[in-house]
Design a protein around this nucleic acid. Structure first.
Lengths: 110, 110
DNA sequence: GCAGCTACTATGTATTACGTTGTAGTCGGC
DNA sequence: GCCGACTACAACGTAATACATAGTAGCTGC
């Protein structure tokens, strides 16, 4: 009966992936690992890759392929200028949304 | 291109509706109104009623029907003990999730 | 060449928010 | 009494997304 945990995550994954990409480029599996170490934000590859594909479709990321030390070539994703702008907007909205939800959960609402 | 605003909300609506019900019972339209006045949490009836139905299915709410002053009878929803327990768990998880996302968006992550 | 590991992809399922349409009850005006 | 407006609830279909599962492909070591 903890499916709401998954639902909480829904909608926030894209924000988190973009946040991961803000400081440095990363490839898919790396993103899965990074998010795997943040409580409540564990996601699978089958989630991450479609998100990355969507970001690419929207031109929010640029992609560079480089050799991997022990496997097939890696596709490194980096935020584009468009992506940075969207991330900034999303972070703004996230802050606002947080406040709103906290208002409600703390009993202070109209 | 602001569909991520809707996506942000997805998964959090149930928590917010339950939070609204924490202090006092409310009927569907009233919940729509209350949430309509909280930034980023505006939801439509077609969202609220299925959520209420889910909560009823899971025995998280009790329902009382009472006459309305100018329309059909209202169905008032109130959190049950089960509902209160779930809400407490969800609030806990929400706090944790907030911290996690903030870690990422503020650039402090592993 | 094959197994194990890495890295990516496709497919199908489950869930949920929303837009649209509709039903039904009450009230006031004509 | 009927109709329109408003209130309150419900059904249906669409769109989006997270996840489980299955699979492909490249690289390395044996």
């Amino acid at each position: 009966m903890n499916q709401w945990i998954t639902q909480f995550r829904k909608g926030l994954v894209e924000l988190c992936i973009m946040a991961v990409l803000r400081d440095d480029e990363a490839y898919g599996y790396q993103i899965v690992e990074k998010l795997g170490s943040v409580a409540g934000l564990e996601v699978t590859e089958s989630t991450v890759y479609p998100v990355l594909a969507r970001l690419a479709r929207d031109r929010c990321v640029t992609i560079r392929t480089a050799p991997s030390p022990a496997g097939p070539p890696r596709r490194y994703y980096r935020l584009s200028e468009t992506g940075r702008r969207r991330l900034a907007e999303m972070i703004d909205h996230w802050q606002s949304l947080q406040n709103s939800v906290n208002q409600l959960t703390q009993g202070a609402f109209p």
